[in-house]
Nucleic acid binder design. Sequence first.
DNA 1: TCAAAAGTGTTATCCTTACACCCATGT
DNA 2: ACATGGGTGTAAGGATAACACTTTTGA
Lengths: 333, 333
Amino acid sequence: MTLPNRLRSSSGTGGVTVDLSAVIVAASPDGPRVLVRQPGTNLPVALPSGPLEAHHRTLDAGLRSWVEELVGYRLGYVEQLYTFGDANRHASARGVPNRALSIGYLALVRESRAKQDHDVTWVSWYRFFPWEDRRHGEPAVMALVREGIAGWIAEAPGDERKHREERAGLAFGRAGERWNEELALERYELLYEIGLVPEAHRDGAAVWAPREAVILEGDILLADHRRILATGISRLRSKIKYRPVVFELMPPRFTFLQLQRTVEALAGVELHKPNFRRLVKHQGLVEETGAVASNTGGRPARLIRFRRDVLLERPTSGVGLPAATSRRDLTRN
Amino acid sequence: MTLPNRLRSSSGTGGVTVDLSAVIVAASPDGPRVLVRQPGTNLPVALPSGPLEAHHRTLDAGLRSWVEELVGYRLGYVEQLYTFGDANRHASARGVPNRALSIGYLALVRESRAKQDHDVTWVSWYRFFPWEDRRHGEPAVMALVREGIAGWIAEAPGDERKHREERAGLAFGRAGERWNEELALERYELLYEIGLVPEAHRDGAAVWAPREAVILEGDILLADHRRILATGISRLRSKIKYRPVVFELMPPRFTFLQLQRTVEALAGVELHKPNFRRLVKHQGLVEETGAVASNTGGRPARLIRFRRDVLLERPTSGVGLPAATSRRDLTRN
DNA sequence: TCAAAAGTGTTATCCTTACACCCATGT
DNA sequence: ACATGGGTGTAAGGATAACACTTTTGA
């Protein structure tokens, strides 16, 4: 086998186009928000995406520069997510095989500081993934999800059925098991594979469910942008546990409860208040400002701020979330 | 700002080339190995890298197909690492700005099963990162590393000096702190930035150390392949802790000690035998085969095998490694 | 008999998680 | 008075990581 060390990709059949797609996240105690473009009345909503410019020294710098232009201020946190490059990315396209590479990025911004633009808007990410919001218990859509999955399991022969049960159980949790909020991407991919989300049919993917079985709410996004967003959600949900990234989304001063609500918004689960406070405090992630907020609706709360030093002190430290599975199942370090 | 939704990247100044680079890892109890190409006598060693073919439906499938051709059997585990795309990737190149994108992949194979090829060879990855092997205590190179870092810290003014101390302490560990084996990439990047590795000078990066200060052993690789390899090492070292991926590197049957030595080879640290056994056993990751190995040099050991079912049972379960930092510093979920 | 590796038991310590409870403010 | 949120104490259970110790083989 020959392994040409580097090949001009455009020299083969079909070309390669490369763009950057960004999951730009903001969050308030109310909910997580993501920046989307509404290109026109009848066109699907899309993630902001832009060209890869040759003059930027690094990919990260390129991403930063155009997102900063978009939101109007300097970004704190930027992270590459994944490079999406399925050939069926534009299945509807012309006959020539054409690969559209998309390098997905996650960026965290403080919504309050982001400028408004006619072209883009902030929307709750649960608009695209209603089954991911369990802050107030299991949402209504989950009945439809379970129904669809049950059908997919039921129609399989014996061996395969067990396999499907396990897969579904893993992604959506079995009875008595805790919901694992990090598996947002796995859940989306399962629903796509089963054919319960409309884009599976749009893409002509081999799916189980007939087109009529698409019963799930949750708005579709352009091309594979819903997958990219799911990747961003999963990554962020896991990252907040071991890096202090939530603070990139917080205002300069905040209360413990505001912080907790923000984490809950991102993770889509409820947390235990006293333990959350203690954990954050115990880790030395925050410090007192001396000020108090009296508009809390109850006893005034002390305003705290993030201790910037921790970024230099420790490789790992995040904000508390309950264990995904029982302790027995995890190897901690 | 206009945000063209998708842009033919080749339409701007300079083109974009895309290739796939693979960190193909095997491991025996002796050490971790990575597959490299030795293109010619005077050319630098390189990671296998190949073109992105338009006809593969997914990137993963494309990567699999050519790596499988290379090693001669079906791959178990494949994971996308990162897309590297610095414009200075080929700093030495022609005047036209030309971006070489490289999508890095990690693949795990069982060395014994991999076919031999005239073009590629297995080498220990510690040949490229001698400071990462602490299985027998701190290696000799670390003296040079510390010396170089100390110089870099010393020449900085007050504020910046503290900052550098913290960064170095984070990556290489402070006195009394445990070595964090996962930070292989961070360590490489720091050494690059300081200018202690030769490729920093080759690339013309803005570095502190003069070219003569390059005192570090550790073989260089083509282009940014050493960075890609460091990314793979870091990723694998963190992954073995929460997913049962080590077993992709093990033969069908093995002893506890073989498993432990393999983990140690990858992580570059020594582990505590009794606790390691218990942890693996307790997690239900393995089962008895009934057979014993009597060539162990001591009491014969029971041969065990990986329980394939666990892949379906649990989202997370890895193999034990001691904590990177003191427990106090971590939020465990 | 000794070296080398296999394998078991035990314990101090710390982390997680849940429960109970008091405090301060606005209506 | 009471609702709402702020804030502290404590204790059961579980995981970690160290220590000591026994067992089984080959040389």
